[in-house]
Every structure is written in structure tokens, then in C-alpha cells.
Design a protein around this nucleic acid. Structure first.
Lengths: 164, 164
DNA sequence: GTTCATTGCGCAATAA
DNA sequence: TTTATTGCGCAATGAA
């Protein structure tokens, strides 16, 4: 029983530990306010090697990974690469979020534009329809403009409002 | 100061850009659930206490913070609280992102609706205008439509594509 | 098997 | 002082 796996009760780890610094790579920090918190995370010592113990012949599958030696050069290399990848990924994620927000703004604007246009068209349509109705009424009432004078609206008999 | 330790529910939420309700990881054929990942950090302690030494003056400027003793009960408490806050904050952030994405979808839909409506209105308007022009020509040419033609289709049925 | 990409998590600094 | 955010590194896992 070495790992407080389940209860998540904040393991009060008191491992002797040592080796606090092992950084050698120039991270070229951008002088951010976090320049201080540059080092941390030193997990803990490696648990016993699982393959050891009773000298069991492990099945051809599951094998506990040797908890990566922290000191391994290769380990540090992998870590650094991953850290880089993580950063990249997060950056992208943030960018995407911003883009999405931007998109929302654009769409909202576009929407307003469209609504305005609809309003305009509706009004135009309304006017035209009213004109039609008016005209139709005139015809229906058989009201013809006084003859004589310049033929302003020579529409004689009922004219069919040809549709289409 | 009674802080009811929250029961560490495994509210694993798959972040990303979708999936809202997701259970813990699928029962992979692997063995252990691998819920262990939070053990690390051993920054090492700093013995001397800055405030010690008898000097009490405490200049109104910077004072080195005692590097929080890892073993302190209060420390653990603060950490746990912060971890909780962090989780909460991140959850909220993710939720917000999802909401924003959702908003985009809604706006896009709405946009399409509006565009369709505009198209329709435009067409209607076009037809009416054509009628007007035709009529005007008839009048101008003093051409009377063949008597007896009863169009009787002056009432342009109102389109019912209206939502809000 | 390897490498990069994602993602949950805890820490610490700092903003509020 | 407390909570909320944020950047960061680690490790597990996913996807080539």
C-alpha cells in the first residue's frame, strides 16, 4: 500500500525528497510574472518495481511502467516536449474560444442587418399592397375618372388585375 | 471554520467542445482506474522565518512570505479550498465556451431563417412591382385588356412565415 | 513502438 | 482574508 489511490484525501506526503532543481533547459520565459514559480513538481520517489516482489513471471501483458526515472535524460526530454505540446494546445484552445466569441458578434451584427432589411421590405410591400387595394376598390365601384381633360387614367371598364 | 470536506465526486467531465454528460472513462480493459496522478511537488522548505529575529518593525514594504509549510494543517486546507475553486472556475469556463458555441449555432440558424424570409419578401415585391409596371403600360398604351377577363386575384395571400 | 495532442489535476501567484 | 483566475508542469490517454 503505497499509493493513497482512492480517497483523494490529500496525501500528506512526507517523502524525504531532495533534488529540487534539475532544470537545465532554458525555458526562455517571457519575463512573465510567473518567473518565480518556475520550479516545482517533484513527484516522489519511485515505488518499488512491480516486476520485483515475489519473482513472479509477469504475464505477457500488463506490466507496471517503471515510474520513469526523474533523472533520466530521456525523461526530461519527453517532459519538455510534452510541456511544449500542452502549451501549444492550450493556446489553440484559447484562440478558438476567442474566435467563437468573435463569430457570435459577427452573426449578431449580420442578424441585425437582415432584420432591418426585412423591415424595409415589409414596409415596401405593404405600401404596394395598399395601392393595389385602393385601385381595386376604385374599379369595383366603377368609378371612372371624369372623362375629358387629359386622360390621366383612361381605365374604362373594369380591368382585370391580371395575375400571374 | 468548519469546512465540510466535499466528497470528491468524480465528476469527470470531458472537456473539449462537446459532450456534456459523460461518465467516467469507459471500462477499459486495463486494470487499475489510474485515478492517481496528484502527487508531486516538493519544493523544499525554507527554515528561517523572516519575521523572527526580534525585529518587529515590519517596514511598509515587501515582506518575504514564509514558504508555507507543507505539513501545516492550514496549508492543506488552503490548498484543498483552492483546488476546489480551480475546479469550479474551470468548469464554469468550459460551460461558457459551450454556451458560446451553442449561441453561434442558434444565430446561424436564425440567420438562415431571416435570409429565407428576405428572399420571399423580395420575390413578392418583385411580382407586385411587375404588375404595376404592366398596368402602367397598359394605361399608357391606352390598351384595354379584353373585356370580360375577371382576374379576381388581387388579394395576395399573406405569407405565414412569421415567427417572431 | 513512437510522437504529438488533449485533458484532468494540483500548485502557486495574483487578481478581485 | 477568501475566492476566482490564470499560467504552468505532470501524467494518462487518445490519435496518428
Amino acid at each position: 500500500m503505497s499509493r493513497p489511490s482512492q480517497p483523494k484525501l490529500t496525501t500528506s506526503d512526507h517523502n524525504g525528497v531532495s533534488v529540487i532543481q534539475s532544470q537545465a533547459h532554458a525555458s526562455s520565459s517571457s519575463s512573465l510574472p510567473a518567473a518565480v514559480a518556475g520550479l516545482q513538481q517533484v513527484p516522489q520517489l519511485v515505488p518499488a518495481n512491480p516486476s520485483a516482489g515475489g519473482g513472479k513471471a509477469l504475464p505477457p501483458s500488463k506490466m507496471k511502467k517503471p515510474p520513469a526515472d526523474k533523472d533520466s535524460e530521456e525523461y526530461r526530454q519527453r517532459r519538455e516536449r510534452n510541456n511544449l505540446a500542452v502549451k501549444k494546445s492550450r493556446m489553440r484552445s484559447k484562440q478558438k474560444a476567442m474566435d467563437t466569441q468573435q463569430r457570435v458578434n459577427e452573426l449578431k451584427e449580420e442578424n441585425e442587418r437582415l432584420e432591418a432589411k426585412i423591415k424595409l421590405l415589409s414596409k415596401e410591400l405593404s405600401v404596394l399592397k395598399d395601392l393595389f387595394l385602393e385601385h381595386a376598390h376604385n374599379l369595383a365601384d366603377n368609378v371612372q375618372p371624369p372623362a375629358g381633360a387629359e386622360g390621366s387614367s383612361p381605365a374604362p371598364n373594369n380591368t382585370s388585375t391580371n395575375g400571374q
